[in-house]
Design a binder for these strands. Sequence first.
DNA 1: CTGAAAGCGCTAACAC
DNA 2: GTGTTAGCGCTTTCAG
Lengths: 339, 339
Amino acid sequence: MSVPTIKDVAKLAGVSISTVSRVMNESKPVSPESRRKVLDAIKKLDFKPNELARSLVMRKSNMIGVIVKDIGISYMAQIVRGIEEIGRMYNYDILLSSTYGDIEAEHKIIEFMCTKQVEGIIMISEKINPETLFKLKSKNIPFVRLDKFYEYTDEHTVSIDYKSTCNKMTNYLVDEGHNSIVFISEDVTSRIGREKLAGFNEGVATRKVKSALINAKDITVQTGYDMGEEIFKLIKENNSTVVFASEDSLAIGFISYCYDNGLKVPQDISVAGFGDDLIASIYRPALTTIEEPYYDMGAISMRKLIKELRNEEKLKDVTILPSRIVERGSVATFTKKNK
Amino acid sequence: MSVPTIKDVAKLAGVSISTVSRVMNESKPVSPESRRKVLDAIKKLDFKPNELARSLVMRKSNMIGVIVKDIGISYMAQIVRGIEEIGRMYNYDILLSSTYGDIEAEHKIIEFMCTKQVEGIIMISEKINPETLFKLKSKNIPFVRLDKFYEYTDEHTVSIDYKSTCNKMTNYLVDEGHNSIVFISEDVTSRIGREKLAGFNEGVATRKVKSALINAKDITVQTGYDMGEEIFKLIKENNSTVVFASEDSLAIGFISYCYDNGLKVPQDISVAGFGDDLIASIYRPALTTIEEPYYDMGAISMRKLIKELRNEEKLKDVTILPSRIVERGSVATFTKKNK
DNA sequence: CTGAAAGCGCTAACAC
DNA sequence: GTGTTAGCGCTTTCAG
């Protein structure tokens, strides 16, 4: 016989299917005897309820859709880890799909996930398309967005305080003895780009140190590398001793450029990043950077989503997580510190 | 009204639900007029069929379970990308779960995925537990394993020819003018470990160069680093000019050790890896290594699984994919080559 | 406490 | 061509 159903269990146990259901779900009292018989039958048949059928009748799929731009991007994978672990705790499975930035695909995925009756959706992307967002909202299915360029509006997200963190890093660099800093900023038309820049500027202003700015067109390692020459120029012009990149990838790209062009990090120039990518600790020199708690971002998003689904709690619009500076080898110290 | 069902469509179109079903699935001819009415109603209501219900009655979930050890491991994420893209082509969704090596969790996940009626399972792990495998087989649900330590038996997998590839790399190194090679091998009790070593030995034997061997207890970057001192000793004893690590992570760890201990790669010592991890091209010096086609491994596994599900083709036991040497900066050239 | 019966949303014979 | 009906495997009234 193929896979057993509740009927088979009922027959073997000599009770009705309702009784079987009741012992399985402990939804209603069942006499000890029936209970035992049912349990025996379940064990004997190695019966496992068909979750599809349960989902259908209970209108509850226990599935969350996770839409990422690309699961191969390491920080996204870290977020997914968090989502997944919390999911398992609450018995939620995740349906994963990647968009590769294709907006057509994005829409299809959302449709499809809805037909699969996912109970909620988490979107992880660098930038989420407004149309997609609109679509998502129209479905009125709970969702959380994890989006680097998120402008606070009325959706739910989990983030860190980019501004104060960049301020902190700037202060740290000055504390280490750096008096002229080059800042590589990312897309300043985005909230995060602006916040990071603002934090840096604030730090520079309060500490009264010199600064120079350069914009990255995107946040790939390649771009960090390609900007090398320009950055070198800025360093020379400003007598800078450190480059603070608003993304680790940019910092790594730049360090690679230094490597290829005979500048030693941190002996000749210090470099700090932002994000604590997987690679930041492996690279040599290991990158001094700001830890973005990706795993936690995923975990908290998931927890929020689940609470919302259980009506235990309304999703708060924005959750701000702490972040910290991770000191590694890429920043030289010019001051004697007594820690 | 909440989400519309097939009934609502039927009512609005003034036909029976069968007719609606028929036009949706094009399963049977329908008069042009009914068809139009149905299509109109569907559009008007923005009706989308409940896939859960369809799955239940058709006994076909269109879901594949993907069990990874940890989606945060970059090569695993690469494999998942391949799986996912092919999946979408064939309208398969993926249900993702990570085990973190916990065998308890592994079993639960398999159970759970089966109750969710996944049609097949792909397991991605460095080492798959025999018990898990047994469980999986007992479910008799099609599955593919992507396992570094896989010993060919009777399951289905996709792999590359580790032996000949290592042989090729060894020859390449000799061609570049290296006459004494240190090989960092991984767990030689595993098939892959053995094959890699065999390939290396073969190359060394045919080219009649000197060689030294050292075993890695695992394949983490840290281990590569920790072995640094021992490797240094081997290099000195054998006058070696190159270290060939059987995993990129080991190579990277070792290069980091060199960096921290004043040996320059490739000026003082060359290093080659295996795998072409994401980091291999980003690291400086960029790592000369062997490209393992992770994406393709995922894609092909998925395609095989789907073919099997469609009964178009039996899963071949083992599929061997091509791989190639990626020349980058970590290996010095001592010979003049006219390419 | 327990069983019969209705029904979740859909597909697939089976009649007409 | 089309509607009726019987399920898919399960939960949940509703009687008893």
